[in-house]
C-alpha cells in the first residue's frame, strides 16, 4: 500500500475551479467576423465595395462636378477624349470628365439604393415583429398585404414616379413605399415560427414584458434573416434605379445617376463605347460586390454555421 501512495501527491482544493464554465468562450459577433473573414472572395469584395462607397462619397466633394455645368460645351477639342492619363475615363459629348460623372452618378445611385434598403428593412422588421406577434393586427395586416402584393411592383414604382415627379426623394419613396410590406411579411413568418418555441414560452411564463421578448428573445434569431434580406435588397434597388433612369422616368440631369449616365451615353455605344460601358461596368461592380458581401455576412451571422 505504501509503495502505491508514494507515486501520488496531495493537491490543494481550488475553491474557484467550480465557478468556471467548461464550455469554450463564445462571442456571437466574434464568430460572425471570424467566419466572414475566412472567405477570401468576400474579403476582396468587401475591399472593392468599401473603396467604391468611400470614393463615391468623397470624390464628388473635391471634383466639384455639377452635371448642370458644362464649361467645355463649345470646345470641340474637349469632346470625346479617349481615356488617358489626364482624363482617366475620358470625356463625354459635352467635354465633361466621365471620371467625375461616374463617381457622382455612383453616389446618387448608392444614396437611392441604401436609403430605400434602410427604410424597407427598418420599417419591415418593426412592423413584421408586431404583425407576427399579435393575432388582431395579423388579420388586418393580412388583408392589406393581400391587396398590395397583387400589384406588380414595377408598375407601382412607375406610376408613383409619374405622379410624384422625378427626383431622389421621390424615387426613394416610390421604391420603399410598398416593398417594406414584403419584408414585414417575411419577418412575420419567422416570428410566428420562433414565438411558440419552448424557450420563449418559458420566458413569457416568467413574466418577461412584450418589448423585451421581441428585442431579446426574437430579434437575435432574426439577424441572419435580416442580413439576407438587406443583401438581396441593395442590388435589387440599384437595378431598379438604373432601369428607371434608363427608360427616362427615374432621376433627372441635376441628380444624375448611373442609370441616367447609361441612358445619356447609350447613343454613343458604338462611336465612343467607353462612355457607355464604364457606367454599366460600375453598376455591375457595385451590385456584385455588395451582394457577395451581404450573402457571406448573412451566412456568417447564422449561429448554426458557428459550430466548428
Amino acid at each position: 500500500m505504501t509503495t502505491m501512495d508514494d507515486r501520488f501527491t496531495f493537491v490543494k482544493v481550488d475553491e474557484t475551479a467550480s465557478e468556471h464554465i467548461s464550455a469554450p468562450k463564445y462571442s456571437y459577433w466574434q464568430s460572425v467576423f471570424r467566419r466572414f473573414f475566412s472567405s477570401k472572395v468576400a474579403i476582396v469584395m468587401l475591399v472593392i465595395a468599401t473603396i467604391v462607397i468611400l470614393t463615391s462619397f468623397i470624390q464628388p466633394l473635391f471634383s466639384g462636378y455639377d452635371p448642370m455645368n458644362m464649361p467645355y460645351i463649345n470646345q470641340r477639342d474637349m469632346w470625346f477624349i479617349r481615356p488617358n492619363a489626364t482624363y482617366w475615363f475620358g470625356t463625354d459629348n459635352v467635354g465633361n470628365s466621365l471620371f467625375d460623372a461616374v463617381w457622382f452618378g455612383t453616389r446618387n445611385s448608392l444614396i437611392v439604393a441604401l436609403s430605400a434598403t434602410a427604410i424597407t428593412n427598418i420599417l419591415g422588421v418593426i412592423v413584421g415583429m408586431i404583425w407576427g406577434y399579435s393575432k388582431k393586427i395579423d388579420t388586418v395586416m393580412l388583408e392589406i398585404y393581400n391587396v398590395i402584393i397583387n400589384i406588380p411592383f414595377m408598375l407601382l414604382v412607375m406610376v408613383m414616379m409619374y405622379v410624384l415627379g422625378r427626383g431622389i426623394p421621390q424615387l426613394i419613396f416610390a421604391l420603399s413605399c410598398t416593398s417594406w410590406l414584403g419584408t414585414a411579411y417575411f419577418i412575420r413568418v419567422q416570428v410566428m415560427i420562433i414565438r411558440d418555441r419552448e424557450y420563449n414560452l418559458a420566458s413569457q411564463c416568467l413574466g418577461t414584458p412584450l418589448h423585451r421578448v421581441l428585442t431579446h428573445n426574437i430579434l437575435p434569431y432574426l439577424i441572419s434573416v435580416i442580413v439576407t434580406s438587406i443583401a438581396r435588397d441593395v442590388p435589387n434597388f440599384i437595378s431598379y434605379e438604373v432601369f428607371l433612369s434608363f427608360i427616362g422616368i427615374g432621376l433627372t440631369t441635376e441628380s444624375s445617376s448611373l442609370g441616367y449616365l447609361i441612358q445619356t451615353y447609350s447613343p454613343f455605344m458604338t462611336s465612343a463605347s467607353y462612355l457607355f460601358w464604364i457606367p454599366v461596368a460600375f453598376s455591375a461592380l457595385i451590385s456584385v460586390s455588395l451582394y457577395i458581401v451581404g450573402q457571406t455576412l448573412a451566412d456568417a451571422s447564422d449561429p448554426r454555421t458557428h459550430m466548428v
Binding site: 442590388p235 437595378s239 432601369f243 447609361i262 461596368a281 453598376s283 456584385v288
Partner: peptide, 9 residues
C-alpha cells in the same frame, strides 16, 4: 451573377 448584376447591364 444573374441576381447581382443589374438586368440592364
Amino acid at each position: 451573377f444573374m441576381i447581382a448584376v443589374p438586368s440592364l447591364a
